[in-house]
Amino acid sequence: MLGLFQPEKGDICYDGRHYADMTLEEKRDLRKEIGMVFQGSALFDSSTVEENVMFPLKMFTNQSYNDMLERVNFVLNRVNLENVNSKYPAELSGGMQKRVAIARAIVMNPKYLFCDEPNSGLDPKTAIVIDNLIQEITKEYNITTIINSHDMNSVMEIGEKIIFLKNGVKEWEGSSETIFKTDNEAITDFVYSSDLFKKVREAQLKEQG
């Protein structure tokens, strides 16, 4: 969807703009409207937190250093990070790295935010903090956010429109409400793969009679 790989079939559309028909220049311009949070955060490890977050501003704007610094501090503050400007990514915990990645993704005020497994490698409590942060930012900045996740807690918690892919093919589409009621075997096997979730489902079905 980000154009890192050429699609073999199908079409990718951003607000009516067909990705396949765009020139290289148009694709680069479109990418300036996209923020991305990678699974492993993908922070530049030889740069400090401040340099990481400032990087898109340096590349694509002509703002003065002070203006860029102000914006960097604003977004770092927004993701609840303070006094980390001069730290390197290796000095931060996994959760803090994810927050820096989110700050870098939103520093240019993107229209679209993509998150690849934003909770991977995080403890359940930190995972919820990251989920909530993504949800808040999405609403606050009116961004279209697409999250790719295996974490069903996260999907149920913050997913508005859910698409279930199996072997690269769309298997099911719905919402966090309809996912509980679906008869699709593939999705129920996946969602209720743990004993705990199986018991929850059984209890729900009993409740519904």
Binding site: L30, R31, M36, A42, F44, D45, F55, M59
Partner: peptide
Amino acid sequence: SSIGTMRVTEQIDALEVMGI
């Protein structure tokens, strides 16, 4: 090793996604 590490840790993908 420096460029290779950037590749396997998705830092190069991050640059590409930014339109660089």
